[in-house]
Amino acid sequence: MKILDYITADTILTNLQATDKKGVIDELTEPVAALTGLEQRNIVRVLIERERLGSTGIGDGIAIPHGKINGIESLVLGFGLSRKGVNFDALDGKPAYIFFLLLSADNSTGLHLRVLARISKLLRDQDFKEKLKRANSAQQVMDVLSEVDEDF
């Protein structure tokens, strides 16, 4: 399994316009809802409920909103890039610029955790993060991911 197995160009947004956490979640879920056929408001609800347990803003300019939802066939990833940064209640108090959205079925705990761990590990690499920040298109994001993507 690779990250590129779960993300498509349609779920990559390289110029988020949102200025707050709810807005980012709304923006990121729109293409994911279109791809999966799930109602956007249900996806948003799941992600907001997860945020209430603790922020998925992990710090260092990164947030990984994630959740589990009924009715999804397989794990789906979305990506967003904010040029201005958004307060996502990160652990370090700094704005988030890079967002990975992860949605999976209620019963896919193992895969959900493996993908979260893989994304977290990749985002520890400063060079990788800088390349993502410079991406201006979905294809450029896919290209950056393909440089580091390997089976996990």
Score class of each variant (00 low, 15 high):
Ala105Lys: 12
Ile69Val: 13
Arg134Pro: 03
Gln126Ile: 13
Gly93Phe: 13
Gly80His: 05
Leu116Thr: 14
Ala135Glu: 12
Phe79His: 10
Leu113Met: 13
Ile69Gln: 04
Phe88Ala: 03
Ala138Pro: 10
Leu111Thr: 08
Gln140Asn: 07
Ser120Gln: 02
Asn87Phe: 09
Val86Leu: 14
Ile72Asp: 10
Arg134His: 13
Arg118Phe: 02
Gln139Arg: 07
Asn107Ala: 06
Lys133Tyr: 11
Phe100Arg: 00
Ile98Phe: 01
Lys84Trp: 06
Val141Thr: 08
Phe99Tyr: 11
Phe100Val: 08
Ile72Trp: 10
Ile72Ser: 07
Thr109Lys: 12
Ala90Met: 08
Leu102Met: 14
Ile72Asn: 07
Ser120Glu: 00
Leu101Phe: 11
Ile72Pro: 07
Val141Ser: 06
Lys84Cys: 06
Asp125Arg: 02
Pro95Arg: 03
Lys131Asp: 10
Arg114Ile: 12
Gln126Gly: 02
Arg114Asn: 13
Lys131Phe: 01
Leu91Ile: 15
Leu91Phe: 13
Arg118Asn: 03
Lys68Val: 06
Asn87Pro: 11
Lys121Val: 09
Pro95His: 06
Arg83Ala: 12
Leu103Lys: 02
Ser104Phe: 08
Asn107Val: 07
Asn107Gln: 08
Asn107Cys: 01
Glu130Ser: 12
Arg124Tyr: 04
Leu111Asn: 03
Gly110Pro: 03
Phe88Ser: 01
Arg134Thr: 12
Phe128Ser: 01
Leu132Asn: 00
Phe79Asp: 03
Val141Leu: 09
Lys131Cys: 02
Gly93Ser: 13
Leu113Cys: 11
Val86Glu: 13
Ser120Gly: 12
Leu91Ser: 07
Leu101Gly: 04
Gly80Phe: 05
Arg114Ser: 13
Ala135Tyr: 10
Leu122Gln: 13
Leu116Cys: 15
Glu73Asn: 15
Lys129Met: 08
Ser120Leu: 04
Leu103Phe: 02
Glu73Gln: 15
Gly80Pro: 04
Thr109Gly: 09
Ile69Ala: 02
Ser137Tyr: 11
Lys129Glu: 05
Gly85Val: 06
Ala90Gly: 09
Gly80Ile: 06
Asp106Glu: 14
Arg134Cys: 05
Leu116Met: 15
Arg124Trp: 04
Ala105Pro: 03
Val115Gly: 07
Leu102Glu: 11
Phe128Glu: 04
Phe128Val: 01
Arg134Asp: 14
Phe128Thr: 00
Phe79Ile: 12
Thr109Met: 07
Leu91Glu: 11
Leu91Trp: 10
Leu111Arg: 13
Val76Gly: 05
Phe100Ser: 01
Leu81Ile: 06
Ala138Thr: 02
Arg114Tyr: 05
Ala105Asp: 14
Leu75Ser: 01
Lys129Cys: 14
Lys131Asn: 01
Asp106Tyr: 10
Asn70Glu: 15
Leu77Ile: 12
Gly85Asn: 03
Leu123Tyr: 03
Val115Ala: 07
Arg118Pro: 05
Glu73Cys: 08
Asp89Ile: 00
Ala105Leu: 01
Ser108Leu: 11
Lys131Tyr: 02
Val115Gln: 06
Gly78Val: 03
Ala135Leu: 10
